[in-house]
Design a binder for these strands. Structure first.
Ligand SMILES: [Zn+2]
Ligand SMILES: [Zn+2]
Ligand SMILES: [Zn+2]
Ligand SMILES: [Zn+2]
Lengths: 167, 167
DNA sequence: TCTATGTATGTTATATTATAACAGGTCAAC
DNA sequence: GTTGACCTGTTATAATATAACATACATAGA
């Protein structure tokens, strides 16, 4: 299919972009990926992803739960936690540790473990390629004989727009 | 005083070391630092730090609270959270986001924002210099026009001892 | 010495985040 | 048509964290 040939957009959350497209595209990729994995993007899961895709922010599990509950899905915590867990497990969303919150992946389909850039002013969350960072981390760990299996890299700061606004 | 001249040990949590010394030294540094800052290392705060210093692991706020409560201090959450907040604010302890837990700083007195190496087997937490990592992170952020103000860098993996044991 | 001020401790109460355990429903494989 | 895997939903509770208020205690001017 077309999706398979099209590389992930180099677009990031801070750049001006057609977010309707961004969001629709993510959903289409999500369908493709889960199908390929033999998993099912059921209504709750799909809706949870759509909710996360509404903007490039992170939502708490209870924020998602309230939205789902208001739309006729279950209204108990496991409903949200399970849907979010599924999305994270399939690389459709990420968990932001600092925020105890979840954000839709902006590079669905590309295996990655990104660094997150969190704007302290507008709360937008962007993903950054973590390759070089991870290399530096592995090197630092290696000095102590430690082998890194997974890493959490999250930065708090100001996005370009909020920085301009502040100046 | 002697402490001021002596650089922080290059020792890290995974290396064999005289932990009695390690711990006593940290406490002495903590006294010096808080005094210099015009702050007071009161009994609860000091005791909370001693508890964290017992080993190179991270303890949850409620773990610390239970210990404090058992020793005659208050037994309500704010008692622990306030002491821990003080320790973190003065660079005597760090918060580990992934674990919702706190660990004594192993480099008290050196301004730093380290990377944490967390062993998934023995739960030991070590600090690694984050200079190069931070440089890579700043560069990745800069590509998107983002300015990093603070960063969380935490790695999960296997420490040298547990790696040997597993082999 | 007195007293105002900032700071520290303690308590009650509540908010927020997360998981365990079980019951019922759907669906495809056998 | 029964089995077994998986998904949804519920009840209940655990774990983490903060708000708000009351009391005590420093210590630095008056
Ligand atoms: Zn977008
Ligand atoms: Zn992603
Ligand atoms: Zn030690
Ligand atoms: Zn430290």
């Amino acid at each position: 299919m077309a999706l398979a040939r099209k590389p992930a957009d180099p677009l990031h959350a801070f750049a001006a972009h057609d977010h309707g497209n961004c969001s629709r595209d993510a959903l289409a990729r999500a369908e493709a990926i889960t199908t390929a994995a033999g998993a099912r993007l059921t209504p709750v899961r799909r809706r949870a992803l759509e909710i996360l895709l509404e903007d490039h922010r992170a939502l708490g599990a209870y924020d998602v739960l309230n939205r789902l509950a208001g739309e006729g899905f279950g209204n108990q915590p496991p409903v949200a936690y399970r849907a979010l867990e599924f999305l994270v497990a399939h690389g459709l969303a990420h968990r932001i540790q600092r925020l105890n919150a979840f954000t839709a992946c902006t590079h669905i389909g590309n295996a990655h473990s990104p660094a997150f850039l969190i704007c302290r002013s507008c709360s937008t969350v962007a993903e950054a390629a973590a390759g070089a960072i991870r290399t530096a981390l592995d090197a630092a760990a290696d000095e102590q004989g430690f082998v890194v299996e997974m890493s959490t890299i999250e930065a708090l700061g100001l996005c370009p727009a909020c920085r301009s606004a502040a100046a």
